[in-house]
């Protein structure tokens, strides 16, 4: 309990609690508006389509919102001091060393992937993937009102990425990771000396093919298994394409947009797959090469 209070009362963790509360509230709020709209067939927003004057109808709302935000911010700033710890000391590494809270999801992924994936490739793909959304989502419905039924796939995919892979991993990194980046329950005391035995194996070793040969050089057979597995994963995209290519959606999407959707989707879903493989089978790498590991 003591530890939970000390995590919660860390001033820099207050925003995470705020984020969590707001995210849950707004998810519930939009889903209930969406289901109401879906149930009645025409969205509530369409009933309010008459024009009003910005002064005072909008300016009033903006003014009140600004007042409320400033009031909250002022009280927050009077009651809670920004942290200032001991002066910077490059030779004294704190344990655990945590990135700022908004990057903790990425730091969490670092447990399961090498830095070139978790720290560079995934953030780049998140940014590019977000930019691509308007161009790959060609469903014209659900523009400008809350709905779920009309855009099921889009909303489920985005919510999975945002709520599960981003927000929850931040919460995990803040409340459940302690010294040595080991897993602790939030109310558990942090034991700096805890050592977790690592019995990780590589994917090919599940099939009895060891990653390295006796002379410590990489085993081509293991590499082949790894590469084949990754190819098989991405070929799901091709299989789905040939299975569904006659459907309206796939036809309208066209091969280029379809490839981008499939690639982004398969990369995104590969994250939890690898996490589960690690947690259940202790898989470290799927593919080991002289230049990089996946």
């Amino acid at each position: 309990m003591h530890n939970l209070i000390s995590i919660l009362s860390k001033p820099d963790n207050v925003p995470i609690v705020l984020m969590l509360v707001l995210t849950i509230f707004y998810t519930w709020h939009s889903l209930s508006r969406a289901s109401k709209n879906d149930a009645q067939g025409s969205p509530d927003e369409a009933k309010l389509s008459d024009k009003v004057q910005v002064w005072p109808y909008l300016v009033k709302v903006e003014f009140l919102a600004a007042l409320l935000v400033m009031a909250i911010l002022t009280v927050w700033s009077i009651t809670l001091n920004a942290p200032l710890e001991a002066p910077a000391n490059p030779s004294l590494t704190p344990n655990p060393s945590k990135a700022p809270w908004y990057f903790l999801g990425l730091q969490e992924i670092l447990v399961y992937f090498d830095p070139w994936i978790a720290g560079v490739t995934i953030p780049t793909l998140i940014i590019l993937g977000l930019c691509a959304i308007p161009y790959i989502d060609i469903n014209p419905k659900g523009n400008g009102y809350y709905t779920f039924r009309e855009r099921r796939f889009a909303i489920l995919t985005f919510c999975f990425g945002f709520l599960v892979l981003w927000v929850s991993l931040i919460v995990l990194g803040t409340f459940f990771r302690g010294p040595g980046w080991n897993l602790f329950m939030p109310w558990e005391e942090w034991d700096t000396h805890r050592v977790v035995a690592l019995t990780n194996v590589d994917w090919s070793e599940l099939f009895g093919v060891s990653t390295r040969r006796i002379d410590d050089s990489l085993n081509p057979a293991a590499m082949a298994i790894g590469a084949a597995t990754i190819l098989a994963w991405f070929s799901l995209g091709f299989i789905f394409y040939f299975w569904k290519r006659k459907t309206d959606i796939i036809r309208k999407l066209g091969p280029l947009r379809y490839s981008i959707v499939a690639a982004l989707f398969l990369i995104m879903t590969a994250l939890p797959v690898k996490i589960i493989l690690r947690l259940t089978l202790n898989i470290k790498y799927i593919l080991v090469t002289p230049w990089f590991n996946v």
Binding site: L48, S49, K51, V52, V54, L58, V59, V61
Partner: peptide, 13 residues
Amino acid sequence: HPVRISRHATNIG
């Protein structure tokens, strides 16, 4: 701002 907007856009929800 524009001078006039549609009512739903003033809805904080």
